[in-house]
Amino acid sequence: MAATPGITDAEEAHVPNPVDRSTFTLYVNGTERTLTLDHRTTVLDALREHLGLTGAKKGCDHGQCGACTVLVDGRRANSCLLLAVAQEDAHITTVEGLAEGDRLHPLQRAFLERDALQCGYCTPGQICSAVGMLREAEDGFPSHATPRTALAGEGPAPLGADEIRERMSGNLCRCGAYPRIVDAIEDVAP
């Protein structure tokens, strides 16, 4: 901390809170995991540093890149912004939980075949995001790209390239694999 006028001195009295950690259960890729964690621990850090699941990536740690995307109770979320303690009893699916044994998830296969990745760092987040996104579209969730005239309650949202691009915009890819990512998702989308 700088000694800038008006900035608080970080050396102010530190009173350790007696209850700053908790024991709770997360269901990760179908497995019950009981953990005792600092309340500050995010789901992302719990996965990476406590459960050895490094598939979800830390790209920004602030919800600004999507590399940490996992599915929480089936819905995609930025795991870097979720406090693990607040997700007690949640079912979390990471990229490691998508394949069935040696059989890749169709999106994993499509990403490989379309070369929808380069450095691979955003890839787990892209794939988890795409899984969640396809579910959202199936459930009729609209997006910013959905035509105004598409009224609610008409079933699954059709997924053209523009829809996929908009819905996948929470996952940044600096290698610029976007066109291939859209192709891969189109291969799998109904």
């Binding site: 919800g63 930025n78 969640g132 929470g170």
Partner: peptide, 11 residues
């Protein structure tokens, strides 16, 4: 829908 991302809106 004009704000944030799909992930953030879910949360």
């Amino acid at each position: 829908l004009a704000g944030a991302s799909g992930q953030l809106r879910n949360t």
